[in-house]
């Protein structure tokens, strides 16, 4: 309660300050206003025409899968559904998933063969948002709260999402999660595990963002860094990129390509 009261005090004081200064501020902002496309980007920003990912499932081990899913949850403040008080049973009903493990026959239900290679049955498959070239979720969203950037990343605006969950019905990969309750209920002491990344609120949808916040500061996605080479990230729109070379040299598959969504996540099996 104390925190809340402190917050209100600060908020009240700021509101007072803003109201007295607002006229002057508006003028100041107007004078120095620069449209986003005219600002200079830092040289370290990673830019691409279409970001993509290759997951070499031959290199995936249970340990790497654990590291990958763990770092993603920690760095993006993804709640741990086992910490939820409600619902008492089936806590995973409210689970938030960004990148997680599935069996081959779940990741590729339309490819599940009767005589599947044993090693594929046993291999952990990592699934995440496919950052589709033609994303059905973006088409479905009635508020443009989910949108595709020019570099191909499909992002969420958590402040605009109305929580209608149309995007979840539209996604053929089950890659989206809804905050059925305050996600901080699933964080220890309700505190973010990574203060540099925002926690979300109840009633909005979320999903993997291809670590857009990392690309903006010139870093590779978290999962790539801890994958011990099993995950490659790069610009698949650039024919000279390392990832394109990998795609040329290896036979890769994508999830449900027949639906025309154009997934940007490739799997080497």
């Amino acid at each position: 309660m104390k925190n809340r009261r402190d917050f209100l005090k600060v908020a009240g004081a700021s509101a007072l300050g803003l109201s007295t200064l607002s006229a002057g501020n508006a003028f100041a902002i107007g004078e120095h206003f620069i449209p986003a496309d005219q600002t200079k980007k830092k040289d370290s920003v990673l830019e691409g025409t279409r970001w993509g990912m290759v997951i070499d499932t031959r290199k995936l081990t249970p340990e790497i899968v654990e590291d990958v899913t763990h770092i993603c949850r920690e760095k993006h403040n993804v709640p741990d559904c086992q910490l939820f008080e409600e619902p008492k049973k089936n806590k995973e009903h409210h689970e938030i998933k960004w990148i997680w493990e599935e069996h081959f026959h779940n990741a590729f239900p339309n490819m599940a063969a009767d005589f599947l290679a044993k090693k594929l049955e046993d291999t952990p498959f990592l699934v995440l948002c496919n950052q589709c070239e033609n994303p059905p979720c973006v088409r479905a969203c009635p508020t443009k709260a989910t949108f595709k950037r020019p570099d191909g990343i499909v992002l969420m605006d958590f402040h605009r999402c109305i929580g209608c969950r149309f995007c979840m019905a539209a996604c053929p990969y089950g890659s989206r999660s809804f905050n059925f309750q305050d996600p901080r209920n699933g964080l220890v002491d309700r505190k973010p595990t990574n203060p540099d990344f925002p926690t979300r609120m109840k009633g909005v949808v979320e999903k993997c963002n291809f670590c857009a916040e990392r690309l903006a500061v010139g870093e590779m996605p978290h999962c790539v860094e801890v994958s011990k080479g099993a995950i490659t990230f790069g610009d698949i729109g650039d024919e000279h990129s390392e990832i394109r070379l990998m795609l040329e040299e290896n036979y890769t598959i994508r999830r449900k390509v027949a639906l025309g969504t154009g997934p940007s996540v490739f799997y080497i099996v």
């Binding site: 088409r139 443009k144 709260a145 209608c164």
Partner: peptide
């Protein structure tokens, strides 16, 4: 009743999106 953020209902009009069937 089904909306996660009912206070934002007007976003459907404010950010009108003709390719969404919900609009």
């Amino acid at each position: 009743a089904d909306m996660g953020q009912p206070t934002r209902a007007m976003n459907v009009i404010l950010n009108a999106t003709p390719y969404s069937m919900l609009f």
